[in-house]
Simulated assay, not measured.
Amino acid sequence: MSYGNDEVRWEVVTAFVRLGLARGEKVLLLPCPGVSEAEVLARIDFPSRSTVPARERGQLVLTSMREVIRPDREFTAARQMGRLSEETDRATAEGYTGLRAFIDMGWVAALGADVGAMAHRETHADQLFTGRPYTEICAYDRRRFDRSVVRSMERAHPRALLERIGSLRSERGPDDALHFIGEADTANRAAFTRSLEIALARTTRNRRLTIDLTRLHFLSVGCATGLLSLVRDAAGHDLVEVRCDQVQSGMLRRLGAGAVPRLAAKEVSRSW
């Protein structure tokens, strides 16, 4: 994930920590260096001291990257991943269902680590997860990292979180498909429509476009109607394929998708 203000950061941290505790997992929290333990606890405990029992029994542990790699003083991907693997095994041996870690990447500057070495770790970490009960969020403060680094890390990770519930993101896939992620609701209708317009303009040379709706949590009638209208008027295209789930397919069908000749709705299963 990336964040540009503290409120977003603490919303995600709090949700991630509480979900892990509710699932019986052990949770490691590595906040940004320089943020006091008192502030961390005040943030995740608001409006009550709900995490106190978890800390007392060792289920929630506040730590740092310096502690994780100890006794080494310099960061290496091998040392870090080895220690996290050990902590995962320890968590299951202690009776927890798994381990999850929230790692604020502010540690990179604090330890004077090489950004290239960090990037290599992020793209070669499969061994931490494959067949193992481990979950991790790496958090990048856009006020600390160059935009190019954040974009590179978003591409390197299997998932990039939306900043807030209710957000909408559009991305171009490797096949030039337009992917929508999040919520296409009334508040985001203008952004949804604009992304469609740009994608249609960009793909007139090939005369075809693929639109993927399967990573949307919500598709409003207004956004669905707008999609059908734009496709109906897309005279520069021979085919617009819309990948959708069963519910989305039913909505498009009831709104008249069958009367749009160049539109082909392809029902697929979600990847999550």
Rank of each mutant, 00 (worst) to 15 (best):
E7N: 08
F16D: 13
R18I: 03
L21E: 14
L21R: 09
A22Y: 11
A22K: 15
L28D: 05
L28R: 12
C32D: 15
V40K: 09
R55L: 03
R57Y: 00
Q59L: 04
Q59T: 03
I69K: 10
P71W: 13
R79Q: 10
R90F: 04
R90N: 10
E94P: 15
G95T: 08
G95K: 01
G95C: 08
G98Q: 07
A101Q: 02
G106Y: 09
V108F: 07
V108P: 01
L111D: 05
G116S: 08
E122S: 14
D126R: 14
Q127C: 04
Y134E: 03
E136M: 13
C138L: 12
R144K: 08
R147H: 08
R151V: 07
E154A: 11
L161T: 02
L162K: 07
R164V: 04
G166C: 06
L168M: 07
L168P: 00
S170L: 02
R172G: 07
G173F: 01
D175R: 06
H179W: 10
G182C: 08
A187L: 15
R194F: 12
S195W: 07
L196K: 03
R202N: 11
R205K: 12
R207N: 05
L213T: 07
T225M: 02
G226S: 12
L227N: 03
D233V: 00
G236D: 12
H237N: 06
D245I: 00
Q246N: 00
L252R: 02
R253S: 15
G256E: 08
G258N: 10
V260W: 04
A264N: 06
A265E: 07
S271H: 14
W272G: 14
